[in-house]
Design a protein around this nucleic acid. Structure first.
Lengths: 181, 181
DNA sequence: CCGGAATAGATTGCGCGCAATCTATTTCTC
DNA sequence: GAGAAATAGATTGCGCGCAATCTATTCCGG
């Protein structure tokens, strides 16, 4: 029953609450996005990651698995089954590249290309759900994109003490500032 | 900048590329966060969602499943197996509430409480990986949190013009510009 | 050429997320 | 107080994400 509160000898440093944490805000917003996409994509039998793959193929068809995974930060463990599902849905074809048999090229079918027109209203629908004016939208996008890049470049392991690589890890003014986790 | 739109008969309206989209930036940043947490949590046998649950329990022990799911936006389909894993790891106990047998209360074990001290360095490690000054950190957190709240309150279905209640596949409205998705 | 290293995907295993459904308790209404 | 409705979790099924491992092809040094 004892509720350890301030001043008590066994008092732990107050751990941040999820709601105050940037990581949780991002985590929850990501789920909220896929949930917002669901009613728009599910009627066409698509999931959000599948939609991302189609966006890439609509921009440039005939990519290899690796050329899809690189911009999406996904590996073959995720993409292989996803692409297989797109194939069995009749939206893409998968075939080994003739010049390099290691590579698998993904090509849209007619149905896959036609889906583009059917989903043309999706970005606007999401835009309305986000409800941010254009300038602010671009600013937030850039901020969050940079955040992802930072986390990807220097993982928490490296950041936890050792200077990564010629790191710009300058002097910390205060060890305890916010609640980033 | 040049805007390649309209004119050619077969020209589709340029679909946004994932890298320009807010939803993708959030999606990628969320994955980058869980990836950053992994080397900090995995040695203790924890995942990021499990860590979130423990944060809540460290702040207030003896919560019900629902009281854990509400702030995390998770339902029993996710939490029941997660909590079962925490239980079989010896970190929590699960028991039906005596006053209301429908509810299941989650209580930390001694090991579960002890883990708090072992993980006390995690927030700072993540904070270094994020590398944002305190004020900016709070601002971004608030922006992203508000974004999630907006998406949760008005899903894309309602925002797309269709009546909120009932009615599948409502009419589509006029297109607009931007790359929010 | 030949054999080892590098590369591209596929496979396996596990833990989320979440919709849909089910069961067991309350709680509400008549 | 009996039956209906509401509520809390559990269960089932599917699609990611990702680490670890495996296979097949290509590249490279000699």
């Amino acid at each position: 029953m004892m509720r350890a509160v301030s001043g008590h000898p066994s008092m732990q440093r107050a751990a941040p609450k999820p709601d105050d944490m940037l990581c949780f805000a991002v985590y929850a917003a990501a789920h909220a996005f896929t949930r917002a996409y669901r009613p728009l994509l599910a009627p066409h039998g698509l999931t959000y990651p599948q939609y991302l793959v189609l966006l890439l193929l609509w921009a440039e068809d005939g990519r290899t698995v690796g050329e899809i995974g690189l911009p999406l930060f996904l590996d073959s463990g995720t993409l292989t089954p996803l692409l297989r599902r797109l194939e069995s849905a009749g939206l893409v074809r998968r075939s080994r590249d003739g010049d390099d048999e290691r590579q698998v090229r993904i090509r849209l079918t007619a149905d896959g290309r036609a889906l583009r027109a059917k989903l043309k209203g999706v970005p606007d629908a999401i835009g309305r759900a986000v409800g941010l004016p254009g300038g602010e939208l671009a600013a937030v996008t850039e901020t969050v994109r940079r955040l992802g890049g930072t986390l990807r470049s220097k993982g928490a392991a490296e950041a936890s003490g050792a200077p990564a690589t010629a790191g710009r890890a300058g002097p910390r003014r205060r060890p305890r500032a916010g609640a980033p986790g």
